[in-house]
Nucleic acid binder design. Sequence first.
DNA 1: CGAGAATTTGACAAGTCTCAACACATGTGG
DNA 2: CCACATGTGTTGAGACTTGTCAAATTCTCG
Lengths: 241, 241
Amino acid sequence: MSVSAIGCALLARLSGFGEVGKKDADAILTVRGEVRNVRRLDDISRAGEAPKFSVVVLRGFLQRYVTRRDGSRQVHAFYIPTDAPSLETLNVDCLDTSLCALVNSTVGIIPHAELKALIRERPNVLDLGWRETLVQGAMFREWLMRNSRLTADAAMAHLFCEVFVRSRAAGLVDHNSCELPVTQETLADALGLTGVHVNRTLQALRETGLVDHKSGRLFIHDFKRLAGYADFDPAYLHLRN
Amino acid sequence: MSVSAIGCALLARLSGFGEVGKKDADAILTVRGEVRNVRRLDDISRAGEAPKFSVVVLRGFLQRYVTRRDGSRQVHAFYIPTDAPSLETLNVDCLDTSLCALVNSTVGIIPHAELKALIRERPNVLDLGWRETLVQGAMFREWLMRNSRLTADAAMAHLFCEVFVRSRAAGLVDHNSCELPVTQETLADALGLTGVHVNRTLQALRETGLVDHKSGRLFIHDFKRLAGYADFDPAYLHLRN
DNA sequence: CGAGAATTTGACAAGTCTCAACACATGTGG
DNA sequence: CCACATGTGTTGAGACTTGTCAAATTCTCG
């Protein structure tokens, strides 16, 4: 059995929120797929297309987004290594969102045919895929709450908490900081704000001393108080432990 | 074979966005479950609980929501007859949202044990459940965009379009109107606005002559122009035809 | 070093919220 | 049938948050 990097990332993700049996794990680990490098701002898939593959992030940082007719943009999710942004597209005819890299990244491309073969062999994997979709749904709901109910400063703090907790779960936190390689403009697209207002809000958060974001990195100086500031509760991420 | 009302609704829902094979359909139709009447504002399940059953709406109107510590509320979705709000809870340990009725309603309660038996017998049903979860995810994303990017009037028009299109797909539209039995306060909880502002916004929409909402019913006088007003594109609902 | 991108700043406009009061409908008990 | 309580819808005035626009500054990278 030859273990692939893609299989490795996929297994890390799927076992993040549920027990994965030995045989299923072995099958997942041998997923072949194709490793692809994507450059910053390259689209991996586009709204309107028919999906032909699913994606696992191996390195870098992606976002899922839509561009509206008037040019404004809404970011729906950020994806860090081991995330599987489009597992669910296996079941859909036409994509309604786009996926792009926010920094040069490496992704695993898993053709739907291969995914289907894996599921045929190990039906439990279907459960895991469903569960992954469901957890992403919970995250969308939290983003909805965040952008609808929180003021700009609390919303930004809340988003920072999410990125930090998910990075920690993926083993990507170094001391008290993690990657968040986005511009303030992108942050604005995620939070439903303006670039200008994000700038001012970030300055305000900076002054609290709880958190900072610079040169594409997030520095959490006091997670507990930041979580309190944002009323952040990680339950919706459905992480184990 | 004895066809149940619950099975009927479930099949209507699942076949709404994908072909369902004959044998699968037959199996779904015989789902037993339990028919339950719930009164207005009764919770069917609550955030924090461990889920034990899934739900199909047979009659009435439900919402999925969270209440925040400060008392504010975010509605994540409205559910009309044939919707299956919590199919996906089959795979989750702890609910992160609550489900309640907004008018006296009748729901089908399907114990997880029975659902699991159905899936064991007809594995394709798993696919359908996954797909249902995925479509709901697409809806959450659209709600996120709506509340983040649209002004109050466009957002309200957009929500009205969604309710109307989904009601039409479920065969619940009478001439040019459908049920939307919610107070302005509830509308505010869904749109991320204040009750007061919803009131004023609704008046503004009323004056356009495109749409009205009164005594729990939505009247669409000119769907096409309303959709234009809100830049509404139903693709995200993934309805067939 | 230069060019383009990203961040920062200021002044002002617009959208939405807050609070408080009032109007209207509904249903209940007397 | 009335009196009343309650929930819902409506209105007004003023405050606050966020957006808009335009320019200046700093950063990044070839």
